[in-house]
C-alpha cells in the first residue's frame, strides 16, 4: 500500500463486511504523528479472534486462507516507530487505531483521502459514514447524514453522479485543512 488512504479504504471494508450501520473515520495530523481511527458498530470480534487478527493466517475471506489488511497496516505503522491498537467487543463494534510518525523516512504519504471516502460511501451507501480530518490549522467533518438530508428519499449515494460530486466536495474540504 503506497498511501495511508489506501490502508483506510482497505480496513474500513472490514467494518462494512461486519454489518456496521455507522462508520467513523478520523484522521489527526499533529505533533509529528498521524493518527488514523476507524471505528464501527459492526458485529465485533471475540477475544480469541482479536488476539490473532494481525496474523496473516487469520482471515474472514473465503476465497483463500490469508488476510493481509491488518498485518500490512500494523507493519506500515510500526516501521515508522508508530503502533496499531484494536479494540473490539462482540455485538458492539470494533475500533482500529494506527499511529504513524510522520518524520520517519518510511512513513507513506497520506494520499487521496477524498477518493477513499467517496468510494467507501459509494460502496456502502446505507451506512452513516462520518469522516473528520484535523490538522493544527483547521478541521472539518464530512457526514453522509447531511448529504442524504439534501438528496432526500429515493436517491442513493451509490449513484455515479453523486459519487463524482462527493469526490469533488471532499477534495475542496481537504484543501481547506
Amino acid at each position: 500500500m503506497k498511501e495511508l488512504s489506501l490502508h483506510i479504504l482497505d480496513i474500513a471494508q472490514n467494518s462494512i463486511s461486519a454489518g456496521c450501520t455507522r462508520l467513523e473515520l478520523s484522521l489527526t495530523d499533529q505533533d509529528g504523528q498521524i493518527t488514523l481511527v476507524i471505528g464501527d458498530n459492526g458485529r465485533g470480534m471475540t477475544p480469541e479472534f482479536l488476539a490473532s487478527v494481525t496474523d496473516p493466517f487469520t482471515t474472514t475471506r473465503t476465497t483463500r486462507k490469508v488476510g493481509l489488511g491488518l498485518p500490512l497496516l500494523r507493519m506500515a505503522a510500526e516501521q515508522t516507530g508508530g503502533s496499531l491498537a484494536i479494540e473490539s467487543t462482540v455485538g458492539v463494534g470494533t475500533t482500529v487505531t494506527a499511529r504513524f510518525c510522520t518524520g520517519h523516512i518510511d512513513c507513506p504519504p497520506l494520499g487521496d483521502m477524498a477518493g477513499t471516502v467517496a468510494l467507501l460511501v459509494q460502496g456502502a451507501p446505507e451506512v452513516d459514514t462520518i469522516y473528520t480530518h484535523t490538522t493544527p490549522r483547521s478541521s472539518f467533518t464530512f457526514d453522509t447524514r447531511e448529504i442524504r438530508a439534501v438528496l432526500g428519499e429515493g436517491i442513493s449515494l451509490a449513484e455515479p453522479e453523486v459519487a463524482v460530486w462527493m469526490r469533488g466536495y471532499l477534495e475542496d474540504l481537504e484543501q481547506s485543512v
Binding site: L6, L9, D10, L68, G115, L119, Q122, V164
Partner: peptide, 21 residues
Amino acid sequence: MATCGIAAGARPVLEAFLEEV
C-alpha cells in the same frame, strides 16, 4: 475492492468507471 485489489490499484479503476458512466 479487497486488500489485493486495492494494493494493485483498484481505487482509480473504480473511480474511472464512476466518472465514465
